[in-house]
Design a protein around this nucleic acid. Structure first.
Length: 210
DNA sequence: ACATTAAGTGATT
DNA sequence: AATCACTTAATGT
């Protein structure tokens, strides 16, 4: 376990000193698929760093009946939003939910400021995180604003494939429809088309990308 | 065997 | 692309 964590921190390009500090101060947290790590309006006192699994970051409307997918957090990535929230002691804005069973390293923000000053590698990591999230946000906005449903669905499937590393997506049409803010009927129809075009295979609860 | 949930489809807006 | 109304298929009890 400790070795796994150390490997991940090293692969993130962090230097020895900050790796030791992060390992010493953090704690392990396991989350089951479907459970929330962060909900909006809460103030989190720890920053989640993904060790294994996959987290999904979304934005909900006030009534909570609609949500917009923003981006995934994969192994070796930390939640950029909660970094700012923790440092400024602000409330969270986004939802973060476990898309798969995941293990996280929860880091208290106590020494965040000093790490940024002391360790160039850590500073770089933080800025790179922001850059990455920014790009992904842009890509999501583009898709929502300019793409038709069929394109959005295709992007959704490919994003899923990329994030999970699996060509099999275990979701119902209903779930996908909610993530794309459309109706199940539309998703069913479009998936049917993709199936006829030989781009996917479908079984109940399962979509296979070819 | 029956009930429930997921997925497919035509027609309408 | 959304909604309705209905059918068919797959699954749980």
């Amino acid at each position: 376990m400790k070795e796994n964590l150390k490997n991940i921190l090293e692969n993130m390009g962090l230097e020895e000193g900050v790796i030791k500090e992060i390992m010493a101060i953090g704690r392990l947290k396991n989350v089951k698929e479907g459970n929330y790590v962060i909900t909006p309006d809460s103030t989190s006192k720890e920053i989640p760093l993904v060790l294994n699994g996959l987290l999904k970051v979304t934005n909900q409307d006030d009534k909570k009946d609609n949500e917009v997918f923003l981006y995934f957090l994969e192994s070796g990535e930390a939640c950029a939003m909660s970094i700012t929230c923790c440092m400024e002691d602000k409330q969270n804005v986004f939802n973060v939910m476990a898309e798969e069973d995941s293990s996280l390293w929860m880091i208290p923000p106590t020494y965040l400021d000093s790490w940024i000053v002391k360790y160039p590698s850590f500073r770089r990591f933080v800025f790179q995180s922001y850059q990455l999230r920014f790009d992904e946000l842009l890509s999501s906005i583009e898709s929502i604003a300019f793409s038709k449903m069929d394109q959005r669905l295709l992007k959704y499937l490919l994003d899923m494939q990329q994030a999970t590393g699996s060509y099999e997506i275990r979701k119902t049409h209903e779930q996908i429809a909610r993530e794309l803010n459309t109706s199940r009927v539309v998703v069913s129809r479009l998936l049917k088309k993709l199936e006829e075009d030989g781009q996917i295979n479908q079984k109940r609860h399962l979509i296979e990308i070819l």
